[in-house]
Design a protein around this nucleic acid. Structure first.
Length: 909
DNA sequence: CATCGGACGTA
DNA sequence: CGTACGTCCGATGC
């Protein structure tokens, strides 16, 4: 291909065949407009309210096309506003089109930015429509032997279709594209592509406001065009055509002729573009990150980066660094490490993380010089293994690693202990961006280093820390690449942590608690399998009973687990009053069913509710039984980087949502028992920690007094609000106060309070006013916390853990108010999380210091569960009380209650 | 086969 | 129109 062959150069000059070329030509306006209507605008907007649905749909379509079609050249043509040669010819052209909505027009410049970042040429020409530009390029490329894909929602482009040219025409939305080949056009319209404009001229095109011949549809038009061999001959023979249609044609001949003039696409538009200009070039990565960050297109960015061929990877690639993997002579590891004493080294382990003991097959270590060593654990010499083990277990050896918890589990499978972690890049990323969902190492490399990991390295499967690259069976090379990335990330992440005031949180809280979590996950909690099995059959029978009762009540069977079928039964068959609306109908949740039951007393409802409860309990027990490990214990995974407020969460199985409220559910706790060799389970929980934090943060004298008085909190607050003696606070009053106190920490409104307590809006409002009158400090605090967060951009906990809430300044009321409730709750929930974490660290270290055999097993937000070694009950009870109470210095005391027993149920209180 | 929404368990 | 989670299931769309 020559360097400069202008598109408008005479096509008769020597034509180089470029039959390897495949062009993707897109009508930008038409596809963006389709995307705008295909995707609901309310679901696509940046946090500051900029709509992005058209940008998203267009970009998504573009990425898919590039991925699936692998074009060698890509180009986007735009319409310009203003008159075109067609409107000059026919003033009403496209006259029926309403002006595009403001929300759409604002997105076109954003699409330009995306195309700029992707280095995709795009162009609009005054007075010319996008399809004419596309037709010109198509014509030229076709003559040079190239294959062309034209993506447009305008049917006029069908005239371009040939053996080499396919039009991709959106069927619905922008992802479902019909491939209009010559055969497809002929089949659909009964004429070959080059005659499609003939047909359109007769039939008319509503979207262009071109009227056709009344009474002539595609069938008649195709018949004429075929019979008379083209529109010219149809026109010439108009007098010979009989019938109503012929008559109609004769009266509309002028319109038909003009239609044909207008719908023919230009093929000789002058542009300065050459085919070479359209050839794909590597994207501008920096710009892509900037633009996609600004548009908040995380998933799309991942899809884009994933699709790019490796040869587009930046020259300065982690892969290159990883290639400097040093082959150490057997026995040399100890020396290599000794030479690097004092350096913080990057670590990565290829292996599998299992809480009870995983497996590791390769270890890689990266140093300050950008080189790394990889150790194959299957073939490693004893001397090297010893050196490795000593280094890993040395608390003084500084190690940076991504996901130290999983790494510890993998290493433990080989009997190795990980001790000296000075930075976990996963935790660091979480502290810096607590609202993100995932923190893949590859993403961090992109974000902080502007680099990509070699492909395959970051595609870790479930529970797998690494997978081997091609020709890298033991995973050492992949691990080396990751170790280098981790090592390089240490500095920028530390800087970021410091700038966010999170350095101490990392060093004093998250890293130490991580070590505690490793022990808790490894320990697990003993399960009484026969008990669970018995419970399972019992719940199973209850499910059966309730189902039969429900079927009997309505005279037929129904899937009780299907909200859709339930709606049919309740609201159609039984004609019950409608409940609250959901997106898909009317709710059938427990509250609504209980309400319906109260009103109708229909036996179906009672059985349905009983079925719901029983099936859920059975499910819970089944799940627990499935997760009992060979050691007879259940090892949950505590997620340390999931909850935006700083809490832990528990998965696989979730041991933080084991039932406690209902008597039946509570029985499940009896299956969590003390393990062999231990004396019992001890539970310790903070009472009313969130309200205590509220008292502390608000410095409200009344609330602080409440906690110092020793009086029951809600009774005390109730006596103030209702202006009665504490003894005169009725249980109804107390319940209202309790609901309100806790609701305040969640951003509860008077409306919400009235609904929850089933009282009038007026009464709820009065209750809140009275509350705030007596506890003005609370009100001041709550308004202050939102104001401050709006100004700063984030909320803070007592340990400085931030939550970023950009939506506080959103124009969208719903988003803004949601952010305000988050701002109210985050400091309270987050401070509680901080305190419990500090307590866990204190308990663990004190148990260790005193060389006790008791151990921490679970954390349930404000509760700790320990397994107590024989003879340690008293000491551990004291120790736990002390450590938990001392975890924070608040203006109110932290009250801890402790229980002890053989099962979690017995230990509860 | 993957994803979404409803429902519901915990704090 | 009260926060934070995880899990299950049926329905839906690829």
């Amino acid at each position: 291909m020559s360097d400069h062959d202008d598109l408008d150069a005479p096509a008769t000059t020597s034509i180089d065949l470029i039959d390897e070329a495949k062009l993707l030509l897109i009508d930008g306006h038409s596809m963006a407009y389709r995307a705008f209507f295909a995707l609901p605008v309310e679901n696509f907007a940046t946090t500051d309210g900029q709509p992005t649905n058209a940008v998203y749909g267009f970009t998504s379509m573009l990425i898919n096309l590039i991925r699936d079609e692998k074009p060698t050249h890509v180009f986007v043509a735009w319409d310009r506003s203003g008159p075109t040669f067609r409107t000059e010819q026919y003033a009403a052209y496209k006259g029926t089109r309403s002006a595009s909505p403001e929300e759409f027009r604002g997105q076109v410049p954003l699409i330009h930015e995306v195309l700029g970042a992707l280095n995709i040429p795009h162009l609009g020409i005054d007075g010319i429509e996008a399809d004419d530009i596309l037709a010109t390029i198509t014509d030229h490329a076709e003559r040079r032997g190239a294959e062309v894909l034209v993506c447009s929602g305008d049917r006029d482009t069908f005239q371009l279709v040939s053996d080499q040219v396919t039009v991709l025409y959106p069927r619905k939305g922008v992802s479902d594209l019909a491939r209009m080949t010559p055969a497809a056009v002929s089949e659909k319209y009964g004429v070959p592509p080059q005659r499609y404009p003939d047909l359109a001229a007769l039939v008319g095109e509503t979207s262009d406001n071109l009227p056709g011949v009344p009474g002539v549809g595609p069938k008649t038009a195709a018949k004429w065009i075929t019979t008379y061999d083209g529109l010219d001959n149809v026109v010439a023979s108009a007098d010979a055509i009989t019938g109503k249609a012929g008559e109609s044609l004769r009266t509309h001949l002028a319109q038909v002729i003009m239609n044909r003039q207008i719908n023919g696409l230009l093929r000789d538009v002058e542009t300065a573009l050459t085919l070479d200009d359209l050839a794909r070039v590597p994207i501008d990565r920096e710009a892509v990150h900037q633009v996609f960050d600004a548009l908040q297109f995380r998933v799309l960015r991942d899809r884009l980066l994933q699709m790019l061929p490796e040869d587009e990877a930046a020259a300065e690639d982690v892969e290159d660094l990883a290639l400097t993997v040093t082959d150490l002579a057997p026995g040399a590891l100890g020396g290599w490490l000794a030479e690097r004493a004092g350096q913080e080294l990057g670590l990565d382990v290829a292996g599998k993380a299992v809480q009870g003991g995983g497996d590791a097959w390769a270890v890689a270590i990266a140093d300050d010089g950008g080189t790394s060593v990889a150790i194959d654990l299957a073939t490693v010499e004893n001397a090297d293994l010893d050196a490795l083990g000593a280094w890993l277990a040395d608390p003084a050896a500084a190690i940076a690693v991504h996901d130290a918890k999983a790494t510890s589990h993998a290493l433990s499978g080989r009997g190795l202990t990980l001790a000296g972690v000075t930075l976990d890049t996963l935790l660091a990323a979480y502290l810096c961006h607590p609202d993100q969902r995932t923190y893949d190492l590859g993403d961090l490399a992109v974000r902080y280093l502007q680099r990509e990991l070699p492909s395959g390295v970051d595609a870790a499967a479930d529970g797998m820390l690494d997978i081997g690259l091609d020709g890298d069976p033991f995973g050492g090379r992949a691990a080396a690449a990751r170790a280098v990335a981790v090592h390089e990330l240490a500095e920028p992440l530390r800087t970021d942590l410091a700038s966010r005031g999170a350095t101490a949180l990392m060093g004093q809280v998250e890293l130490p608690v991580l070590a505690t979590l490793v022990g808790m996950e490894r320990a697990g909690i003993a399960a009484d399998v026969p008990y669970f099995s018995g419970l399972e059959s019992e719940f199973d029978a209850a499910v059966e009973r309730a189902a039969l009762g429900a079927y009997e009540a309505i005279g037929h069977e129904v899937n009780l687990g299907s909200p859709k079928q339930l709606q049919e039964v309740l609201f159609v068959e039984l004609d019950m009053p409608k409940t609250r609306k959901t997106k898909t109908g009317w709710t059938t949740d427990a509250d609504a069913l209980a309400d319906l039951f109260a009103r109708t007393e229909h036996p179906f409802l009672g059985n349905l509710l009983a079925h719901r409860e029983a099936i859920r309990l059975r499910q819970t027990v089944e799940g627990l039984l499935k997760s009992v490990a060979p050691d007879g214990r259940i090892h949950t995974t505590f997620q340390q980087t999931v909850a935006a407020t700083g809490r832990l969460s528990s998965t696989d199985p979730n041991l933080q949502n084991i039932p406690i409220r209902t008597a039946e559910g509570y029985r499940i706790r009896e299956g969590f028992v003390v393990g062999e060799g231990y004396e019992g389970l001890l539970t310790a929980d903070y009472s009313q920690i969130e309200m205590r934090i509220m008292a502390h943060l608000s410095s409200d004298e009344g609330l602080i007094d409440a906690f110092q008085s020793g009086e029951d909190l809600h009774r005390y607050v109730g006596s103030r609000v209702f202006r009665v003696e504490p003894a005169e606070v009725t249980s109804a009053m107390r319940a209202k106060i309790k609901a309100m106190s806790y609701g305040l920490a969640y951003g509860l409104s008077a409306f919400g309070l009235s609904k929850q307590l089933s009282i009038s809006a007026g009464e709820a409002k009065g209750l809140m006013d009275d509350y705030f009158e007596r506890f003005g400090g609370v009100r001041d605090y709550l308004t202050g916390v939102v104001d401050e967060a709006r100004g700063e951009g984030w909320t803070s906990t007592i340990l400085g853990r931030r939550r970023y809430l950009p939506d506080l300044t959103s124009d969208n009321r719903q988003r803004r108010e949601m952010a305000e409730r988050m701002a109210l709750n985050a400091p309270i929930q987050g401070s509680a999380a901080d305190i419990v974490k500090v307590a866990m660290i204190g308990v663990t270290s004190e148990l260790e210091r005193r060389d006790l055999g008791s151990r921490l097993l679970l954390q349930v937000h404000d509760e700790l569960v320990l397994e107590v070694a024989p003879g340690e009950r008293e000491e551990v009870t004291e120790l736990v009380r002390e450590q938990m109470a001392a975890a924070a210095d608040l203006e109110v005391p932290l009250d801890v209650s402790v229980g002890f027993g053989r099962s979690w149920r017995d230990a509860g209180h």
